[in-house]
């Protein structure tokens, strides 16, 4: 088995169709009102049960969660595999970090199980929607510290936002399973973010350059995971930024503010791309 595993080779059965961020962003249709500015008022795009397309949107997001959990499982498994146990230098990781990654693999496996059951409950078929492999890409770095930043802080941070949104959805709809399951998964994700933050700090304790590089990488991944502003504090974003749970997970106010700013920029950039595409297409 190879030491590092490329995203293109992720193994799936025939039901799954994969895509990537570039393909996803080349779709210039938009559900966002282009006339609206970030400060203007109007109907919210938040994923709540009172949206006319609430169930469809929730199903699509649940499928996204399921494939995201599959990739998170694969990412954690690969990090447990790809690096020898050592002192953290020269491509090694501490033995205890390997153990934590194995634990995370189990947690993510349970999350896949939960997501599959919830998808079934909501009437979604496995593979019904395309799978964006951007999450696993964050787990492909040859530097384990970048993986901690990209996966445990950026990806799992996104999971905190998504699960919080879905938990609220379940709460408002009075769905007996959705809120229950999302709350359990949320607890795991907060643990994973804390775990990532702790290890990032410990492994780079005497290497400020490496830490800075990892945090830069996290910012890049965080912006990608904004999905063109689909996640953000603006009401135009279907998924909110879960400040309280992010704080529980160890994000500082400044860090959350930075992510909120990137989300806002990503939304405005996306709107500009869509506007230009529509002008070009003359529709």
């Amino acid at each position: 088995m190879r030491q590092f595993f490329p995203v293109e080779d992720l193994a799936r059965d025939d039901r799954f169709v994969q895509t990537n961020m570039a393909e996803r962003m080349s779709d210039t249709r938009s559900a966002v009102d282009l006339q609206r500015t970030a400060k203007s008022r109007g109907a919210s795009n938040r994923l709540t049960p009172d949206r006319h397309d609430a169930s469809d949107a929730a199903r699509s997001l649940m499928h996204g969660i399921m494939v995201g959990e599959i990739q998170a499982l694969e990412g954690a498994g690969r990090t447990a595999h790809d690096f020898d146990a050592g002192d953290g230098s020269e491509g090694t990781i501490p033995f205890e970090l390997k153990l934590d990654m194995a634990r995370q693999a189990w947690d993510e496996a349970r999350h896949v199980e939960i997501s599959v059951k919830l998808s079934d409950w909501m009437g979604t078929e496995i593979g019904q929607f395309q799978e964006n492999t951007v999450l696993f890409e964050a787990a492909c770095s040859n530097d384990p510290v970048l993986r901690l930043a990209g996966v445990n802080r950026a990806l799992e941070g996104l999971a905190i936002d998504v699960f919080t949104q879905m938990k609220e959805f379940g709460q408002l709809a009075d769905d007996p399973f959705l809120e229950f399951c999302e709350d359990w998964m949320l607890a795991d994700e907060v643990t994973h973010v804390k775990m990532g933050s702790d290890w990032l700090r410990r492994v780079t304790e005497n290497d400020p350059d490496r830490r800075a590089k990892a945090l830069d990488f996290q910012r890049v991944v965080d912006k990608l995971f904004s999905f063109g502003g689909a996640r953000g504090e603006s009401e135009e974003s279907p998924i909110g930024l879960a400040r309280r749970f992010r704080e529980l997970a160890g994000f500082t106010d400044d860090e959350v503010d930075t992510i909120a700013g990137m989300d806002h920029d990503a939304l405005e950039e996306r709107k500009e791309v869509v506007r230009l595409a529509r002008e070009t297409a003359d529709v």
Binding site: M122, A173, D175
Partner: peptide
């Protein structure tokens, strides 16, 4: 059509 999808929509509007 996927009946379970319709059932979920219906539960969301009318109760579980």
């Amino acid at each position: 059509p996927i009946q379970q999808g319709y059932r979920y929509d219906f539960r969301n509007r009318f109760g579980f």
